[in-house]
Design a binder for these strands. Structure first.
Lengths: 113, 113
DNA sequence: CTGTATCCTTGGGGATACTG
DNA sequence: CAGTATCCCCAAGGATACAG
């Protein structure tokens, strides 16, 4: 999980924001998080439609990274045709909650713009 | 200020997180925000030291973007040698507050790791 | 349907030198 | 001190084709 090479210290304690930024740093990750929050347990194809503009390759790689980071879990059903469902882990849900104030800030900002 | 070309809608309302992500998207921006939060009204050179690893060019361009986004304000004193101070605007402070839960999430995560 | 495999492009950021 | 000006690089993403 590639530790940050930036100290990000102040007054002797770590700020922690850099850790979070690495996890949500991918171009579409917060959007995937948001989609999974509003539409729990979504399939690959549905996710692709829920995040317009993303390509299959990027969606797949982002999902794998998010899985490795423990914020998304993947359940593959052994069927034909294949079926896979993605959902948020507990930690992913907590991340989403932690993201809410930031989202609110963005919403206020686009309103007053 | 380059509007996102991503809809980021769900259930009919905009999520807003994409707006925020554009503002804090630069590689070092959250660190600059954090530094300015812990050390208000800092000079260019001080900031450079407070954010170890950043180059002058990138610090300057990030500061300019953050200024354009209205989260940082720049005060130049007409002296010799030149002296410039950077600080957070009201909106920048609110952004920092909105970032705190995310920072907490990151802190918890590095602890349990 | 759920993905890989390839190939290619772009721009954000790094290194360095220079200036008012 | 507080920045520009250049040049360069590379990894994150995009487009497209193919596979189990």
């Amino acid at each position: 999980m590639a530790t940050a090479n930036r100290p990000c210290v102040g007054g002797g304690h770590v700020c922690g924001i850099d850790v979070s930024m690495e996890v949500i740093g991918g171009k579409w990750k917060v959007l995937i998080l948001w989609a999974l929050h509003e539409h729990p347990r979504r399939r690959f194809g549905e996710l692709r439609r829920l995040v317009p503009g993303i390509t299959e390759k990027v969606l797949a790689s982002h999902l794998r990274e998010m899985e490795a980071d423990g914020i998304v879990d993947r359940v593959a059903y052994d069927e034909v045709p294949p079926r896979v469902e993605y959902g948020l882990t507990k930690d992913g849900m907590r991340l989403n909650v932690a993201l809410e104030p930031l989202a609110a800030w963005g919403r206020e900002r686009s309103q007053s713009a």
